[in-house]
């Protein structure tokens, strides 16, 4: 094992940290943009899935089935290379990563939201209706806040997975945290860069976990 740690000194460590921080930035960009788009999209998808029009609900069901039924890795490859084989169109790889991640995560979020919305007692809709709230008011004032509380634990799982899934971006050459750390591991033939990357992922997810714990506590004022 000793040789695994060879050629790593303090000077290199500081360089390594700088490199990996660049990777963290890329990973966080993938993470944040995916989240900002996939969460609202997931809501739309969860409504579309419940649509009474088959022309809407059937494609949405197929979409969710495919997104949850195939590896994200494969989806990334198809999203990036697919357009070329069909339309002779090649495009930005970071954009491809965002598209693939958003499509995949929106499907998962949609199912979480659907579960949350369906778990709401019908009495809440009836009470809101009897009090004269419009459908939109009922959803945004009565249902949604309660759904958010209900889906928080499941969403935390999904968000934590997203942090780690950003490592898949290297498949199409996006230099995220894991990619940069494995390049450095190759350069030094050492696992140290991978360990350090692991610490970064751990810290990122510790922050995510703490953030969710904070929000869960904030919503703990009612049962």
């Amino acid at each position: 094992m000793e040789s695994l740690f060879a050629t790593i000194d303090a000077a290199y460590m500081s360089k390594l940290l700088v490199i990996l921080l660049q990777g963290v930035l890329t990973s966080l960009r993938i993470f944040a943009i995916t989240l900002v788009i996939a969460v609202p999209l997931g809501f739309l998808v969860s409504f579309a899935k419940k649509s009474k029009y088959k022309i809407v609900s059937v494609p949405i069901n197929i979409y969710i089935l495919i997104m949850r039924g195939t590896p994200l890795l494969l989806q990334i490859l198809i999203v990036y290379f697919g357009p070329y084989y069909v339309f002779r169109l090649s495009y930005d790889r970071f954009a491809a990563i965002i598209i693939a991640f958003v499509l995949n995560y929106a499907a998962y979020f949609a199912e979480i939201f659907r579960g949350g919305i369906e778990s709401m007692p019908v009495g809440q809709y009836e009470a809101a209706g009897a009090l004269g709230f419009t459908k939109a008011q009922t959803f945004f004032r009565i249902i949604l806040p309660q759904v958010v509380k209900r889906i928080l634990p499941a969403s935390a799982n999904e968000v934590i997975t997203l942090v780690k899934d950003t490592a898949l971006a290297q498949t199409i050459g996006v230099a995220e945290l894991f990619a940069l750390s494995s390049k450095q591991a190759s350069f030094k033939t050492s696992v140290i860069p991978l360990f350090v990357a692991g610490i970064f992922y751990f810290v990122l997810n510790w922050i995510v976990t703490a953030a969710f714990a904070y929000f869960e506590k904030k919503l703990d004022y009612y049962k």
Binding site: G123, Q124, E126, A127, A128, P145, Q146, Y222, K223
Partner: peptide, 9 residues
């Protein structure tokens, strides 16, 4: 309502 259906939040 029989079950009150208050808004818990």
């Amino acid at each position: 309502f029989q079950n009150f259906n208050l808004f818990p939040h």
